[in-house]
Amino acid sequence: MKTKLMFLVFLITSLVTSCTVTENIYVNKDGSGKFNVDLDGSSLMAMMPKDSLKNEKSIDSTFTFKQLLADNKDSIAKLSIDEQQLLKKLENFNMRMQMNQEQKQFLFSLQTNFKNVSELQDAMTAINAISLLQNKANKATEFGSAIPSEGLANNNSTLSYSFKGNKFTRIAVLNIVKKETLNEEAAEMNKMIFASSNYIVKYHFAKPVKKVSNTSALFSEDRKTVTLQYPFSEYMEHPEKLNLEVEF
């Protein structure tokens, strides 16, 4: 497996376990738009001893998943058809990594465009897919053993989006069968790992919002942006809490 991929998984794992994950979804009038997820691990950087990073250079790098998958095509060919299809969905994602010791900055950004909101995926799908690829090829390595086999942030739900007429919806349905068979030790580990993390979703619309079904939603002054924020543990255990129906 490529060293670059293992390093990437290690850094993303560190970020998600102690950071703020922010989804920004920009929806145009025709249902197309842009999806962006930011993982801010600056607090993690601030806690690291200065000596541990004294020789590290600042990083500001951008690359495409399409190239990353091409570089690891031999490992991908060994996966099941379903797993290969999951990874193929990431081809249009771009990633930017920024790390600056002096500014205590440690950021990852994942971005892609969509033609219809039905193409949208859970933000963690991309991260779980990378974990899947790395785990399959490196189960015996230090990197592989550090990531739960059920997925880095798998909340056992199926997520779907819809934008029809004057309504936008996000619906997460819990997969009860999978939830019941989830390894208890892994579930408890996930709970501890994400205890200090937050999950924020911001929806940016082209026109003002009339009302939102989710009572936890906050509006921007022009009512074109709707924000939901929960502890990451809530996202993991009760993904349906982020469900909403927006009327314009």
Rank of each mutant, 00 (worst) to 15 (best):
116 N>S: 14
114 F>T: 12
59 I>C: 02
244 L>Q: 09
145 S>D: 11
94 N>S: 14
131 S>W: 00
190 N>V: 06
164 K>V: 15
191 K>V: 14
189 M>S: 13
95 M>I: 13
47 M>E: 12
195 A>C: 00
150 E>N: 09
235 Y>Q: 08
66 K>G: 13
152 L>V: 10
98 Q>F: 01
68 L>V: 11
28 N>G: 10
111 Q>Y: 05
27 V>E: 04
202 K>R: 14
122 D>F: 05
143 F>S: 08
130 I>A: 09
204 H>G: 02
147 I>E: 02
100 N>V: 11
164 K>Q: 13
92 N>A: 08
13 T>N: 13
89 K>H: 09
225 T>D: 07
158 T>W: 00
24 N>I: 11
27 V>F: 02
160 S>W: 01
79 L>A: 08
183 N>K: 03
72 N>D: 08
239 P>D: 14
73 K>D: 13
29 K>R: 08
65 F>C: 06
11 L>P: 01
96 R>T: 15
208 P>M: 07
45 M>V: 14
109 S>V: 09
83 E>L: 03
48 M>V: 15
182 L>E: 14
68 L>A: 02
124 M>A: 12
103 Q>H: 00
66 K>A: 07
21 V>P: 00
115 K>Q: 14
184 E>Y: 07
39 L>E: 00
118 S>I: 13
221 E>Y: 02
228 L>A: 12
41 G>Q: 03
159 L>W: 03
175 N>G: 10
90 L>Q: 10
68 L>E: 05
120 L>T: 11
114 F>C: 11
51 D>M: 06
96 R>N: 15
80 S>H: 03
106 F>E: 02
125 T>D: 14
130 I>P: 01
78 K>E: 08
132 L>G: 07
66 K>P: 00
128 N>I: 07
248 F>L: 11
38 D>A: 15
86 L>R: 05
96 R>D: 12
104 K>D: 12
173 V>N: 02
44 L>P: 00
93 F>E: 02
57 K>F: 10
179 K>R: 08
144 G>L: 06
50 K>H: 04
32 S>K: 00
197 S>H: 04
221 E>M: 03
81 I>R: 04
83 E>F: 03
75 S>I: 02
205 F>R: 01
246 V>T: 10
166 N>L: 07
157 S>N: 13
7 F>M: 08
234 E>G: 03
111 Q>V: 14
63 F>Y: 10
56 E>Y: 06
138 N>Y: 10
67 Q>N: 10
50 K>I: 09
230 Y>G: 10
186 A>C: 02
98 Q>S: 13
198 N>H: 05
10 F>E: 10
121 Q>P: 04
71 D>G: 04
197 S>W: 00
152 L>I: 15
208 P>W: 01
142 E>S: 14
168 F>T: 13
22 T>W: 01
47 M>T: 13
130 I>W: 02
21 V>W: 01
67 Q>S: 12
227 T>E: 12
95 M>P: 01
66 K>R: 05
225 T>V: 15
169 T>M: 08
11 L>R: 08
119 E>M: 11
219 F>N: 05
29 K>H: 12
97 M>S: 08
11 L>T: 04
30 D>K: 04
2 K>C: 06
60 D>E: 15
4 K>I: 06
152 L>E: 10
144 G>E: 09
19 C>V: 08
142 E>N: 10
95 M>W: 01
25 I>Q: 00
78 K>H: 09
122 D>I: 12
73 K>A: 13
